[in-house]
Amino acid sequence: MAEIPRSDLSVAEEILGGYPAEEPALIQILQDVHRAYNYLPCDVLERVAEALDVPLAKVFSVSTFYKSFSLEPQGDTIVKVCTGTACHIRGAGLLVEELERQLGVGPGETTEDLSFTIKTVNCVGACAMAPVMIVADKYWGSAKPTRVKKYLAKGGDDEN
């Protein structure tokens, strides 16, 4: 079995240094860790638990409770497809299928080269533009399966 590479803990130490070593800081620290590593690595969580003197089980519980935290490495670009009622009716399912064809992975999964992660979300509050697909931070309204390739190529670049 391949050995799991250890994370660079110096980034975590820097984050921990910015907060009081107390339990109430836990979620903010986890958010910073998630931003820095693009996911929550196990060894970093162990360090956070130790630094805040919070049981590891509690840290794990919080990390798995929130949808915005991932314990698996995520792609550089996160592709979200809204599957809320309006988007669902207007063909969100087709967008997901097309994404699966293009990237070879399903919702909640990450491509092997860590470039994309596909996620389905329940509602992004842009029902008038349904169906909505979000690539990085760029919202694509009235998204069409035939244009998925273009959305991915243009990524989250606002210039496009």
């Binding site: 049981p55 089980a57 519980s61 409770f65």
Partner: peptide, 25 residues
């Protein structure tokens, strides 16, 4: 001791040790 906790939420909630591995504590 706090070796185990509830993990995940909604219909996926379960009681589990950290990272679903033997709990160190």
């Amino acid at each position: 001791v706090s070796a185990i906790s509830s993990a995940d939420r909604g219909w996926g909630r379960e009681i589990a040790p950290p990272f679903h591995k033997p709990p160190p504590d």
